[in-house]
Structures are given as C-alpha cells and as structure tokens.
Design a protein around this nucleic acid. Structure first.
Lengths: 172, 172
DNA sequence: GGGCGCATGTAATGAGTTACATGATTGA
DNA sequence: TCAATCATGTAACTCATTACATGCGCCC
C-alpha cells in the first residue's frame, strides 16, 4: 500500500496525470523510491475504479489525451488511513547486502578489504547524489535528511569494518 | 541471487536438508532476512538441477526421506562469484517507511508525534530482539552488529525528529 | 525526416508468497 | 488421542517488472 500512499500524497498536493506522476517519482524521488510506468498506470486505474480518485480527460489537439486525477473524499479518507498506518509502523528494510557480510570469512582478508572498498565507493557516490539533489518543500525534505543520515551511518560502519580488517591483516 | 548465496553459504559450512535450512533461516536469521519454505525448496531443486549442489537421499524408518545437500565444485565456484559480487555492491534498501515521512505535514503535529512514538517503540523492540539474539560464530556476527548499528541510528534519528516536532508544537 | 519526449496502455515474465496436500513421529 | 513438529512438495495468486505497441508533436 506504500505505492498507493505515494500516489495519493502527490495527487493531494497537486492534480496530475499518470505520466507526470511517473516522471516526478523517477526524476525527483529516485534516491528513495521508484515506480515504473506500467505500475503507476495500473495503480491509478485501480484506485480510479475503487473510487479513490476521479479522472478528467483532457484533450490537447491530436495528442493522446491526458487523464488528470484528483482525490475524491474516499481517496482522502484512504490517504489519511494509509498515512497513519505507515507512520506508526517500522518495516525493517531488506538488507540483501548483509548476506555477503555473513560469509566474509570465506575470503582472504586482503580481497575482502578490496571488495568492501568498492562498496564504500558506491555508498559515497549515493551520498553525493542525494546531497546534490534539489531540495524539496515541506516534509519531503525529511526523506532526504533521513537518507543522508542512513548513508552516513553506513559509511561510518564500513570504514570501521575496513579498519578492523586491515589491522587484522597487518598485525603491527 | 542473494537467496542462492545464502543457501550456498550455509550449505558450505555444513551439509543440510531443505527443512533444516529453512528452519535455521527463520529461527536464527529472522532479524536480517527470511525465506519461506516453498522458496527454499524451489531454489534447492533449481540449484541441484544446475549442478551447484548434489543431493543424497537419507531414509530414516518410515519417515519422509530427507534430501541432504552438498556443494559441488561448480557450486563452490558460483558461491565465490556471488559472494564477491555481493560484497562489492551497495544495494540501497527500500525504505517504504519514508513515504509516510514525506507527507508528515498532512497531520496535526501532535498526532504526528504520537504516531512516530509508536514507530519508535517498534524500533526499540526490534533492537532489543537482536541484542537478545544468540551470538553467531565468525562473520555471521558481523550481520548482527550491522543491524544493531542501523537500528541505533534509526532510533537516534527518530528521537531527534520527535524532539524537533515537539518544540514546534509547543513553542516555549 | 528521424529520433526523442510525451502519453497511454497490454502481454509476458519473474520472484516470492499463501494456501493447500500428504504423511510420519513425538510429546502432553 | 490429538496437536505440534518434521519433511517434502504443488497450485494459485500477488505484485511489480521488462518488453512491446501505438501515435502525436517538437527540435535538430
């Protein structure tokens, strides 16, 4: 239901058509989430059918018509319910990266360090990307701050781990 | 491929049958990952067909026979490849919780604080659960430490956010 | 005039889950 | 004896993705 919440939340701030929503999410929210085009269209159609949003066809010359969506009162209700649910809950994220960590000792320490350095670079790059991201208004900015916080912690942890391993690799 | 890596890594440490693997993952690794039974059996069959693991049927009385799996040399190769790949990469985890955060300003501050308190409790509970978890040998322990690190950072962030909001709610 | 961006969608695929099915053993 | 655990699996379903399909307008 998180994707539904996202779409409802964006539509609530400003009425938009599908492509616009997709585009905004891919462009401006790429550091924290994503949603492919067919998913966006599918969810919008679904929510339209269940009465959460209403659509207005807008024809512009011979172009394919745009379907501009607006929250209905049911949609507003659903939005508030989903938002409260989401805020009150903690969903442990999937750390698929941790699986490799669990078997780190299968490798020579030197190689393990080298690989973790590469990971470190990737985290640094991600952090840089977010910090360069255009700042958003209102609480959307909170998401950026949260991501920065997370990536910084991740970087600290990796650095400590690499240091530990290095000490073990070259004792004195 | 992370699930395959997990199964291979566990089998490499000790030969096991499907149920045993499933059980270990659900019991001892629940704080960082999970894998349902049909998924485990499916992946084991797939890896067996592609020659990564070999199975030995063990009959014990009238019980359903157990299929005990061992890494083949191909499996060993695949394991090392997947491990290196995993260690070198950074996969940004899905923060579905952040979507609610993005729309925090739709709520009265007082309610937002109350909801975040509930989330805070959930994070605290998760942290406690991990710290009580039985310690693992070797680098499996690294995963626990990483999780503790993450949850602590999460808790700090939530506390700061709640403090900020509280100040805004009651200025002086 | 040819490719990219706008705008919508369908179809096929994939990864993983839930629900279901089976049958023996073990413990309260 | 009756439920839980051990042990394996199949079938159906969900959610989201990739690949495909269509067609207009705009800019180089």
């Amino acid at each position: 239901m998180d994707r539904e919440l996202l779409l409802l939340g964006l539509l609530r701030q400003q009425e938009m058509h599908g492509y616009q929503l997709y585009d905004f999410i891919e462009r401006d929210l790429s550091y924290c989430t994503d949603m492919k085009k067919p998913t966006a269209y599918y969810l919008l159609n679904k929510m339209s059918e269940s009465g959460w949003i209403s659509e207005e066809q807008i024809q512009d010359g011979n172009r394919p018509p745009r379907k501009v969506y607006t929250l209905t009162s049911q949609g507003e209700e659903a939005y508030m319910r989903l938002l409260r649910e989401n805020l009150a809950q903690h969903t442990p994220p999937n750390f698929s990266d941790d699986i490799g960590l669990a078997f780190l000792d299968s490798l020579e320490i030197v190689e393990a360090i080298a690989l973790l350095q590469i990971r470190r670079d990737a985290v640094t790059a991600a952090l840089g990307e977010i910090q360069d991201a255009p700042s958003h208004h209102g609480s959307l900015q909170l998401v950026i701050e949260h991501q920065v916080r997370f990536l910084s912690a991740e970087l600290d942890w990796l650095d400590e781990l690499i240091t530990q391993l290095t000490e073990r690799a070259v004792p004195q």
